[in-house]
């Protein structure tokens, strides 16, 4: 991981401006980060588990006619789109670190929240670790498959990467993984996928094919594209530079912070992955001066 130009404290020609060393900057960054670490993000626990219950409840509400199909489709698309982030907090052990009393809750949120997305927790974590370690590396970053000059190209590339015959990205990352949990992760992935298709088939041949398509199959594909755009493409665009301070950026989303799922401050997440999602904004505003000093990518006008 290369850092920005590191040098001992010196002046930059203008005697009034002191250029701080890499070590000093790191120390100050860590001091700021410490303020945002350690809190249990209960809002993410509620989000993850509550959203899963919401998605489950769509099924009986639709079958009993309480919820019209168009509303079920809209609600399911929303629910599946937002289901990844709580699992992401769990992947980084933000809810509870290993060995702590609430670790079971961390694992529960991680496993349960992404079931509608068909993304098993262990597969998500194994591939996400590779993303953090190799962000923007065309060979080693599993999320590099979402590259694109613009959002529609990125969306298309993302859809192509999800085709059953595509061998890049996540498939490669899993294939080269030496993680001790890889066997279990692959088994869970296979069971989840087979269960998904068995449920779709059973519903379809029982006369509920349209319901199955509009509550799970299509919303999942829309959600995957949205997640790939806002969690992979936008924060790393143009996906060309590598290194701790260069592989992601701060940016201003044209659709706002909420619709871009807080990813405008993704640079904070890559620097300090254990800062909860809701704290990345405040942490960014506090740390921004130091990042600017390092010349980190910053596409926020404010």
């Amino acid at each position: 991981m290369s850092a920005a130009p590191a040098a001992p404290a010196e002046t930059n020609g203008d005697e009034s401006i002191v250029v701080r060393s890499d070590r000093e900057l790191k120390r100050e960054e860590a001091e700021i980060a410490r303020k945002y670490l350690g809190r249990v993000p209960w809002e993410m626990v509620g989000w993850g588990l509550g959203n899963f219950v919401l998605w489950l409840s769509i099924w009986p509400l639709t079958f009993t006619g309480v919820l019209p199909l168009w509303a079920a489709f809209a609600l399911a698309t929303f629910s599946i789109t937002i289901c990844y982030l709580p699992s992401h907090e769990a992947q980084h052990s933000i809810i509870a670190a290993e060995g702590s009393p609430l670790r079971w809750l961390n694992e529960l949120v991680g496993h349960v929240s992404t079931i509608p997305l068909l993304l098993p927790y262990r597969i998500a974590w194994i591939t996400h670790k590779q993303h953090h370690a190799n962000a923007n590396d065309p060979e080693l970053d599993p999320d590099h498959e979402n590259r694109g000059e613009n959002w529609w190209q990125a969306a298309w590339n993302g859809m192509q990467s999800r085709q059953f015959g595509a061998g890049e990205g996540y498939a490669n990352a899993l294939g080269r993984s030496e993680d001790p949990n890889i066997g279990k992760a692959l088994r869970e992935g296979t069971i989840l996928s087979l269960t998904h298709y068995a449920i779709l088939t059973a519903l379809a041949w029982s006369g509920f094919a349209i319901e199955a398509a509009l509550i799970w199959w299509l919303p999942r594909h829309i959600a995957m594209t949205y997640i790939q755009l806002f969690l992979s493409w936008a924060p790393h665009h143009p996906m060309k530079e590598k290194g701790r301070y260069r592989d992601t950026r701060a940016w201003k989303s044209p659709v706002g912070t909420i619709l871009s799922m807080g990813m405008e401050y993704h640079i904070v997440h890559h620097l300090f992955p254990r800062i909860p999602l809701f704290q990345t904004g405040p942490a960014y505003h506090e740390i921004r001066g130091l990042l600017d000093e390092r010349g980190c990518p910053n596409d926020r006008p404010d």
Partner: peptide, 8 residues
């Protein structure tokens, strides 16, 4: 298994 009944 899925597309056929969905189309129908």
């Amino acid at each position: 298994a899925f597309l056929a009944p969905l189309i129908a």
